[in-house]
Amino acid sequence: MADKMALAKAINESLRRALESDPKVLIMGEDVGKLGGVFRVTDGLQKDFGESRVIDTPLAESGIVGTAIGLALRGYRPVVEIQFDGFVFPAYDQIVTQLAKMHARSLGKVKLPVVVRIPYGGGIGAVEHHSESPEALFAHVAGLKIVSPSNASDAYWMMQQAIQSDDPVIFFEPKRRYWDKGEVNTEAIPGPLHKAQVVREGTDLTLAAYGPMVKLCQEVADAAAEEGRNLEVLDLRSVSPLDFDSIQASVEKTRRLVVVHEAPVFFGSGAEIAARITERCFYHLEAPVLRVGGYHAPYPPARLEEEYLPNLDRVLDAVDRSLAY
């Protein structure tokens, strides 16, 4: 059955389905219960599944992730919410030293099927710590899987798959796209969680992005088309693992690659992509892999974020530079 719904609602429906189909699934976080989350992603779930399954936790992120680990050890599948990207760091210790490593530490005996949901990214005019993109800080850590949907359908299905995953998944939700609507077929058979998707076919250059930047790249491709340029847009969907095969296939066709993310360029996921694709496609590339992203500066106050974030012109500028080689 296909319904048009907002991305936030798609996650809500996906969580609802998980709660219905698996009694071990729990929702935990600050304000996720009675309030339904500050973005209403968990709206109505506590009312329907009760306080023992949709849990308003104390205001303590390390506690949220640390106890989710314990619950997972006991056989539960916690889906925890970190209210905003910039608030994850009290939990960073638990995520890096425990959540990511316990499986290996136990020689594979222990599995930690924990999903950590993090609304991330900027563009909503927020105060400090509410607009960051810390995905690379997690991607650097082995043991974690990192995904970020760009649209409602992926949000629904990727959440289903993340909850089913026996590995911990950091689920980055593009908060500025929460209210974007899209078709969600709840009876579809989804593709693999960590596989990229070509969302627009093209021949002249590949734009690779994930989460909030996919929509921007589609707009860039539209604008470029008016100038007679045929760009391919690749929605990476997963940051760890990265689907290098799909990127390679696209680049072997287009011979040019621009990677776009909100996170700072320096040591960002684009750097890893550029290095790997240079290794894999050296003789196919007509231009160096270019990156568009945030600067090596703290995320600026709201009135400057439009200058900091990749936008149509900045990506087009990179496209021009790539095509000029």
Binding site: P23, K24, L26, V110
Partner: peptide, 17 residues
């Protein structure tokens, strides 16, 4: 392995269901 283990008691009851 928590996934393969047969629960001695019903863990589901602990979830309040």
């Amino acid at each position: 392995s928590t996934a393969a283990r047969t629960p001695r008691r019903s863990a589901g009851s602990k979830a309040g269901t």
